[in-house]
Each structure stands twice: as C-alpha cells, then as structure tokens.
Design a protein around this nucleic acid. Structure first.
Lengths: 204, 204
DNA sequence: CCGTCTATCTATAACGG
DNA sequence: TCCGTTATAGATAGACG
C-alpha cells in the first residue's frame, strides 16, 4: 500500500519536489562516488536546481573543473581532427575537380583544333592567321588522324583487300567532330562565363 | 547464494569491472535523467573510463557544455568575489599593521628621546649637537615628565602631606626607561635591518 | 561481448513525529 | 523542515546461453 509507483513527470507540489530533489541528489552523488571507486573512473556531476541557490558539484568544484577540462580538451582535439579531415577531404575534391578541368581543357583544345581544321579544309586561306601553338596542335592532330587512317585502312585491306581512298579520313573527321559536340560545356572554362552555378538539388 | 554484498573497492578483475562500469553507468544516467525530469533541474554527468575511448557525456556534449558553462561562469563570479573579499581583507590587514607600525615608531621616537635625556643628565654637553626636532621632542617629553611628576606629587601630598622633593622625577625617568627597555625591537624600523624575517612557526 | 534472468540488495515514497 | 521508519519499487551481482 505504501510506495506507489512514481510517475516520471515534473512534481508540481513544491515541498514534495524539494524533498525529492534532496534525496535523489544524495543518491546520485553516492552513485557517482561508487562508480569512481569501483571502476577507477574520472566522473563528475553538476546539478542546478532553481530551488537551490548553490549548484551541487561532485566530487568538488575543482575536481569537476579538472574533469570538464579533460572533456573540453578532448572535444577540441576531436573538433580539430574533424576539421583536418574535412579539409583534406575538400582538398581531395578540389584536386579531383582540377584534374577533370584539365581533361576538359585538353579536350576543348582538341575540339578547337578540329574546328580550325574543318574550317581550313573548307577555306584554306583562313589558316594564315593562326599562332604557332595552334599550328603545332593542328599538325599533331593531323598526324593523329593520319595514324588513325592508316590503322583503319590496314584493317580494311586485311579484311577485304580494297584499294586506298580519300573517303575514310573525311568520315573520321566528321565522326570525331560529332562525338565531341555531344559534350556539354559545363566545364568549358574557355567559353563559359565566370558566374558561380547555383546548386538546387536536394541533399548537397 | 547469489548476490553477495559488493565491497566498495576497485574491482581488479578486468571483465567484471567493465561489466560493472557499463551497468552502473546506465543506471547513473537514468538517475540523472529522472532527476532532471522530476525536479526540472539542469544536471549533467561526465564519465571517463580508462577502459573506454569515448567519455560518457549526459545529457549530450552540447547540453553538458551548457551546464558547465553556467557553472564556470558562476564559479568565476564567485572567484572574483572571493578575490575581492581577500583583497579587502588584506588591505584591512595592511592598514592594521601600518597603524601598529606607526605606534611602534612613535614609541621608538620616545625611547630615543628618553635615551638622549638620560645621556644629557649624565653629560649635559652632549645635548649640543641635537637637531631642532630632537630638541623639540625632548622638551615636550620633559613637559610630560613634569606633568606626571606634578600628578604623582599631588597624589602623594593628598595621601601623606609630604614636602616636595627632587627624587620622584628621577625615579620616574628610570622606571620609564626600564619599562620601554622591555619592548623588543621587532617593529623598530629605525634600527632593524631591511632583511625579511623568516617565519619558522607552524601553521602560518 | 551482449542480453537475459533472478535472487537479492538498495534507495526511496509515504507516513508520522 | 528535518529525521526516522517501513514496505516496496527499482537496481544489480552473478550466472548462463
């Protein structure tokens, strides 16, 4: 009949609450004390009651400060480590993006060269005002085309023993141009504006 | 047969200690939680186990930091107040000591004057090379002596109707000199050296 | 290591002084 | 408000799977 099951809720009765607070506080501190003794751990408890002017600090203000300094130190270290981790992660991201950017630049250069080549095929006089690097790139590209053409012709000649022709090169150039045209210019720093892109997708 | 009464001491058995730690930690946290709920108090607990890499922080690292910031703030305020109190206490001490010092200086001056007076009585020519303040002090001291003599003689004449004599003054001077000679020169800043005195007594 | 079980121990709710 | 008492709810030591 005594000892009804205590309901876990705020005790509105003032005196009862204060009495409960005192009792439980004592029990709690005893618990902490026992834990410290039994398991040799650093533990502290800080309890503020609006009903009590003094906060209860176990094992002592000094001891509590010691424990919480340790805790603060550890969390700070963790925070720094986290920051470090994030930083290295971001640096990895940047490196990755930079690599991709370099790739895109290279492809873009090739595309430009291809455009010039096509233009030159249509109107040879337009090649007059090209810079030396452009001409170099153009020549190396043409070399690549020629190599590709040689390989294709070799395959064709092995399979069907056909005579040489001028058609394959032209087709190859057109195919290449079409392929590169499929690539969107998201990473094309040579032509895209300098504005930042706004990410609107969820969870980024 | 089960459940022997647990001895309140460090559990040397490793596994048993760890198991105990986990169980009691849980219980402790539950207690803190209930206290918070039942009495609406701000309470936190921080527990470090050497067996555990992570410290246990209730209600949460953030919550604990909040509570301990409150505590730190309060203790700092207290500390400042304590410092203030100590400061004012020390100032009071200093004032007291200064007062006593001034007293001692005064007595010392009187003693010096007495010495000069006695010297002068033995060899009157030695009064020649005294400074004006010394002479002034000497004269006022003589005035005091004379006053004292008058009073004593009055008492004597009232009690015994005796004739005036020159003996009492001399006796008075000797008594006074003897009395002042009993005072050790601990606070005698006029003659003591400037070295600090070493306190060797216990509990100071 | 981890959860579960149970006999036991401990803390404490309710009450009276 | 504080202390003491008492019966009980809740915590837990030790064992087991």
């Amino acid at each position: 009949m005594m000892r009804k099951k205590v309901k876990l809720a705020y005790i509105t009765n003032n005196a009862a609450r204060k009495a409960m607070y005192k009792k439980r506080k004592m029990g709690l501190i005893k618990e902490v004390s026992e834990l410290r003794t039994l398991c040799n751990v650093d533990a502290c408890a800080i309890i503020y009651s609006p009903d009590d002017s003094q906060p209860e600090v176990y094992p002592s203000p000094l001891g509590a400060v010691r424990v919480l300094a340790k805790f603060k130190n550890m969390t700070e270290k963790k925070h720094i480590k986290k920051m470090r981790d994030q930083e290295s992660f971001l640096q990895q991201c940047i490196a990755k993006v930079n690599e991709e950017l370099e790739n895109r630049r290279k492809k873009n250069r090739e595309k430009e060269i291809t455009k010039l080549l096509l233009k030159g095929l249509v109107a040879p006089s337009s090649l007059q005002d090209l810079s030396l690097p452009d001409l170099n790139g153009l020549s190396s590209l043409i070399d690549l085309y020629l190599k590709d053409i040689d390989q294709r012709m070799e395959k064709l000649s092995l399979g069907q023993t056909q005579e040489e022709d001028c058609k394959p090169p032209t087709v190859a150039v057109q195919v290449e141009a079409a392929t590169t045209a499929e690539c969107p210019s998201e990473f094309d720093d040579q032509h895209a504006g300098g504005g930042a892109t706004a990410a609107t997708g969820p969870g980024i």
